[in-house]
């Protein structure tokens, strides 16, 4: 396995990790399997496309073709994707959490509502923008680095670094802030957290906004490699869900390990000559199913009894 393959694997792993961590945190703290994560992904991609399209002439007029201009462009792209993702989180909070969180059968109903939101959002995008995919501006520019004889594309390196940065920030926030402490308490034991005065309603909103922003970040980073289309969210959603499962729903380290494993597996299978790119999905799902049959609670998942 050469260095280029490792970089490609890390690239995949960082996108998957962004999606999987969001789904995992959301499930363990709020109790929602967020099927609208893919919609959040697609909507933030489109928002970033609209914002950068609108700002492009402004930036070009005021800053010209300087490094500052591309930095401003990158800021606009990432910022708009993050903000839209967080706003999508607010919508999910208002529809799938607030009205039903104390009603019977809440997890299944939340799942259904987010599923409905996903369908509505994807069809809405299809209706407004058409099925054509849109290219976003390349914030990392075109070009390659030469490292030890292999070429690394700027967008790959940027994606890996950006994902690691944003994940470190998220995990740091969870670890060191007051709100993060509350979220972690809810992840461990929602009932106990409620008894010690942690409001479920007040904590769910920042969690949903955060996970939405993570999906937005994933959209901004992935749009450097592929185009944005209304159905762009489906594959990241399925991948994120299955990796969150593989890691054991609710376990952040498990999700990270799962993402790295799947990233390397996909890169590896894609590189094997007689299997090729066509069997990547196949191999991933087979791998995940095998792991789940051996360890039904995933890699980092706790046993049922310990969680209860």
């Amino acid at each position: 396995m050469d260095l280029g393959l490792i970089v490609y694997a890390l690239n995949l792993a960082s996108i998957y990790a962004l999606m999987a961590i969001g789904i995992s945190i959301l499930w363990s703290s709020v109790g929602v399997i967020n099927m609208a994560h893919g919609a959040t992904f697609a909507v933030s991609g489109y928002a970033a496309w609209l914002v950068t399209g609108a700002l492009k002439p402004v930036i070009a007029a005021s800053l010209g073709k300087t490094a500052l201009a591309s930095a401003a462009m990158a800021g606009a792209l990432v910022g708009s994707a993050l903000i839209t993702g967080a706003l999508c989180g607010v919508v999910i909070y208002l529809l799938a959490f607030l009205p039903i969180h104390d009603k019977p059968n809440y997890p299944v109903r939340a799942l259904i509502i987010t599923l409905g939101l996903n369908i509505a959002a994807v069809q809405g995008l299809l209706w407004t923008f058409g099925p054509r995919s849109q290219g976003l501006p390349k914030i990392f520019g075109f070009g390659r680095w030469e490292v030890w004889g292999t070429k690394i594309r700027y967008d790959q390196a940027g994606t890996i670094i950006g994902a690691i940065l944003i994940m470190t920030l998220t995990l740091g926030w969870l670890r060191y802030s007051r709100r993060g402490l509350e979220v972690r308490a809810m992840m461990q034991n929602a009932e106990g957290a409620a008894y010690s005065g942690i409001s479920r309603q007040a904590t769910a909103l920042p969690v949903l906004m955060l996970t939405g922003a993570l999906a937005g970040m994933a959209a901004a980073l992935l749009s450097q490699t592929i185009f944005v289309s209304p159905t762009a969210g489906v594959i990241p959603l399925i991948k994120g869900l299955t990796i969150a499962l593989l890691g054991g729903l609710g376990s952040v380290p498990g999700a990270l390990i799962g993402a790295v494993l799947v990233g390397f597996l996909e890169a590896g299978v894609g590189a094997v000559p007689f299997l090729g790119q066509r069997y990547v999905q196949f191999a991933t799902f087979l791998f995940i199913i095998t792991v789940l049959i051996i360890r039904p609670r995933g890699i980092g998942g706790l046993l049922d009894d310990t969680r209860e």
């Binding site: 299955t242 499962l245 999905q281 196949f282 199913i289 789940l292």
Partner: peptide, 28 residues
């Protein structure tokens, strides 16, 4: 077979993966 070992949503997502495998397999 795995439905007795896995529970609830785990099994749901697993079966979703199976459907995806079937689609990919047929297309390939």
């Amino acid at each position: 077979a795995p439905s007795t070992r896995l529970d609830g949503l785990y099994y749901a997502l697993l079966t979703m993966g199976v459907a995806e495998i079937c689609r990919v397999f047929v297309v390939q």
